[in-house]
Design a protein around this nucleic acid. Structure first.
Length: 419
RNA sequence: GGAGGCGUCGCCUAGUCCGGUCUAUGGCGCCCGCCUGCUAAGCGGGUUGAGGGUCAAACCUCUCGCGGGUUCAAAUCCCGCCGCCUCCGCCA
């Protein structure tokens, strides 16, 4: 949700932001009108209510006929107050419904356009020179690391088992990510993965992409698609202290996605699955610090990619592909030898105050409180195994283990096919 | 799953039975000022948050876990929900 003050004071900025996203800027005028209407209804209600209050004070003192007269008057006034309140509530609701429509104000410098209009910022690492390329699933099966048929048997399509070195690789990768996060000052957190509707909605995941989210009807709980959700909810309705700098959490969780709109995409292997694990960085900071914090999150992501020796590129995601809550988003995409393309492995978003406003996360200032900024970024996920297997494959189907992961794989430098 | 108890402005707490004088009491902590060689103590004032309003104030509305209801009037009565605690049952 946007700050209404921004809309009042600088509607043109919101119009420009809407256009950059490729969305309608008419909404801005509608918002201003709704805001004005709400203000009128509210002041009418407040005036009536004040009158009612003073009348209520006179009643217990009055006697006999005078009291009866006051009671009659009060009763009439009570009806008016109720009507005025209903009108004010309605105006408020209308405003809120409009206010959730526009996405976050796009940060300056974001490329405009849609999904394909991203800007490549840099390429890092070297693509492997391979004569014969096996894809991650073939390699995973040779290593007895990935078992898709049994995943499908037990749970359906887009489910899988990680077995043997596959399970070790996953645990190692996530542990490495956690260790690095802790070194960088993050507090490690294992989060709930079932959350209430307010939290899911407050984080912005029940908007356009509600279809992506699993919902447990019997309990009215949602399965999170990322620990960003419970980490954003962690300080919901709290006033936090940012005097000593950003508050940083590294969340470890299972993630669940319905992948409802992606039939036929990435159907092979474990690139796009319903359940995976992720270590997610999450920062709370002051709005004016959020740009710097965003760059730091990106740096930490790149350090992690360097640690597992994967070639990647960094892209600056275009305005139309930001999703509603991000003001800017950088993705790191790993090279995928089997497909000759890049695949998203991290994504870091600066949500500025967009999420925190809905969730009521503020800090104290000299005159009152104000909404903080939230940011998130991926540190490692199950999908990384795809990039690790493919980029480190050897001609015989074995896989080189990046040095940083060796401690988690019994010191092994090479994973070899099981015969 | 069963039974009972609880939720008040940072923390603790009075108020809830019996609706109006609650504009929510007191203490602790914190902030400002006064006083006192320093410290401690003492004295006076302030101290939930949100939305309006103002140059700034004053001031107005909402806020006693959340939502609804009854009433001229709700912290107080009624209903629903959420959370916490105790005991019992079940369970990794």
């Amino acid at each position: 949700m946007l700050d209404l003050r921004v809309i009042r004071e600088d509607p043109d900025r919101l119009r420009a932001s809407q256009r950059a996203r490729g969305e309608d800027d008419q909404i801005v005028s509608q918002l201003l009108a709704a805001d004005e209407a709400r203000r009128e209804q509210l002041s009418r209600f407040e005036a009536l209510r004040a009158e009612q209050k003073s009348l209520s004070k006179q009643i217990p003192k009055a006697q006999g006929e005078q009291k009866q007269a006051l009671l009659g008057k009060a009763k009439q006034l009570a009806d008016e107050v109720k009507q005025a309140q209903a009108a004010a509530d309605e105006a408020q609701r209308e405003l809120e419904q409009l206010a959730i429509v526009p996405g976050n104000l796009v940060e300056e410098g974001v490329p405009s356009g849609g999904e394909e209009n991203f800007v490549e910022l840099r390429h890092v690492g070297h693509k492997p020179q391979l004569e014969k390329v096996r894809d991650h699933l073939e390699l995973g099966e040779l290593l007895r690391a990935i078992d898709v048929p049994r995943g499908a048997k037990v749970s359906g399509s887009r489910f899988y088992y990680l077995t043997g070195v596959g399970a070790q690789l996953e645990l190692g990768l996530l542990n490495l990510a956690m260790s690095k996060a802790i070194e960088n000052g993050f507090t490690p957190v294992i989060t709930p993965t079932l959350v209430r509707p307010e939290i899911m909605g407050g984080t912005g995941f029940l908007g356009a992409h509600a279809e992506e989210v699993y919902w447990l009807e019997a309990d009215d709980l949602y399965l999170v698609g990322t620990s960003e959700v419970p980490l954003a909810g962690y300080h919901a309705d709290e006033i936090i202290d940012l005097a000593d700098g950003p508050i940083r959490y590294a969340g470890w969780s299972a993630c669940y996605r319905r992948e409802a709109g992606s039939h036929g995409r990435d159907t092979r292997g474990i690139i796009r699955v319903h359940q995976f694990h992720k270590v997610e960085m999450f920062s709370y900071c002051r709005e004016e610090d959020s740009r710097d914090e965003h760059r730091r999150l990106l740096t930490w992501e790149e350090e992690m990619l360097a640690a597992v020796e994967i070639p990647y590129r960094v892209i600056d995601v275009a305005a139309g592909d930001l999703g509603s809550s991000a003001a800017r988003k950088f993705d790191c995409e790993a090279w995928l030898p089997s497909q000759g393309r890049y695949m998203e492995v991290t994504s870091t978003s600066n949500c500025t105050t967009f999420q925190a406003r809905r969730l009521g996360i503020r800090e104290r200032t000299d005159n009152g409180t104000r909404t903080v900024a939230t940011l998130n970024g991926t540190l490692a996920t199950t999908r990384w195994i795809v990039a690790i297997l493919e980029n480190h494959q050897q001609p015989d189907g074995s896989v080189h283990v990046p040095e940083a992961l060796r401690p988690y794989l019994g010191g092994r430098r090479l994973l070899e096919p099981v015969t």
